[in-house]
């Protein structure tokens, strides 16, 4: 085929341009460390990586949610353990007093201790976490438990509501991080038990003291059951946390594999292109040397 002089140069020009654009692509890769910098570089991989990054961001949020859940449950655990031992202590007192007739002094001391325990139990019921009352259901701004005396009869009443605090720990999964005070305290009859016990001791009513001892025993069991219930939920969060931790690591690895340049390969490619580019430049220089003019 006849070759026009212009074609020779055009060929060189276009090859050099093509090689330099390929060279730039690889240089971009190597310098940015990324396999792709825009969707068109590799649409399928980009969509994959967007999906992975989305999941990663969600998991990081779930991990934060787990922290919130753990805070609540840890606080619950501490409080419930204390309340349980408090109930046990009250039962102890009841047992001691039911064993025989006591002096007025002993009874007065017992009454004051029970009263003190009641105050402490109410205080525990009004535990705050970051300024929120955790046993008030959704009413976290006001102390859920209060004492009142009407007509000479003392009582403890609940001013929270019956809702439990949920934390999201997965796409379609929530966990109860805090149960309401109705369930936790009122259903245990602890307050009523303590009040009745106080009254019974004051009245020196042996049968009533024994009755309250049973009620307090039941309350202790009830709180212990709740402690283990909290424990179950804590271990559920722990497992979730481990899963998310592993998942997070895996996803991070996948994102890295997908997005990050394999340097050994990229640098090899870069070398190849550089050589090709140099050869093309050298050829360009040679071509302009060859001409009939040299021999005329």
């Amino acid at each position: 085929m006849r070759v026009a002089t212009q074609s020779l140069y055009r060929g060189i020009q276009q090859n050099i341009l093509r090689l330099s654009s390929e060279l730039k692509k690889i240089e971009d890769k190597v310098s940015s460390g990324k396999n792709f910098n825009r969707p068109s570089d590799n649409p399928v991989a980009v969509v994959n990586s967007l999906g992975l990054r989305g999941t990663l961001a969600r998991i990081e949020q779930y991990q934060k949610n787990l922290q919130t859940g753990n805070q609540w449950l840890d606080m619950n655990e501490t409080v419930l353990e204390q309340v349980s031992s408090l109930a046990a202590r009250a039962q102890d007192i009841a047992l001691q007093l039911s064993s025989g007739t006591q002096t007025a002094e002993v009874r007065a001391a017992a009454v004051s201790e029970i009263d003190h325990l009641l105050g402490e139990a109410i205080g525990l019921g009004n535990t705050q976490l970051n300024g929120k009352y955790i046993f008030g259901g959704y009413r976290t701004a006001i102390p859920p438990f209060a004492r009142s005396v009407s007509g000479g009869i003392e009582s403890v009443y609940y001013q929270g509501d019956g809702n439990d605090f949920q934390v999201r720990i997965g796409p379609n999964e929530t966990i109860t991080a805090g149960k309401n005070g109705e369930t936790v305290f009122m259903d245990s009859n602890l307050f009523a038990g303590l009040l009745d016990l106080k009254q019974a001791i004051a009245d020196n009513d042996q049968t009533a003291i024994e009755e309250q001892s049973t009620i307090l025993q039941e309350a202790t069991d009830y709180f212990n059951a709740q402690v283990s219930d909290v424990g179950i939920r804590q271990s559920r969060l722990k497992i979730k946390g481990e899963i998310f931790g592993q998942f997070n690591l895996q996803l991070q690895n996948q994102v890295d594999d997908l997005e990050n340049v394999d340097y050994s390969q990229a640098i090899l490619e870069l070398k190849e292109k550089q050589t090709a580019y140099e050869v093309a430049l050298a050829a360009a220089a040679k071509i302009s040397e060859v001409s009939l003019l040299n021999y005329l």
């Binding site: 070759v3 026009a4 212009q6 074609s7």
Partner: peptide, 18 residues
């Protein structure tokens, strides 16, 4: 295509010199 066109229409200096 431009190469094909130039093979017919383009100037080759060596040819012109001859």
């Amino acid at each position: 295509l431009e190469e094909v066109r130039d093979s017919v229409s383009g100037v080759n200096l060596d040819e012109e010199l001859t």
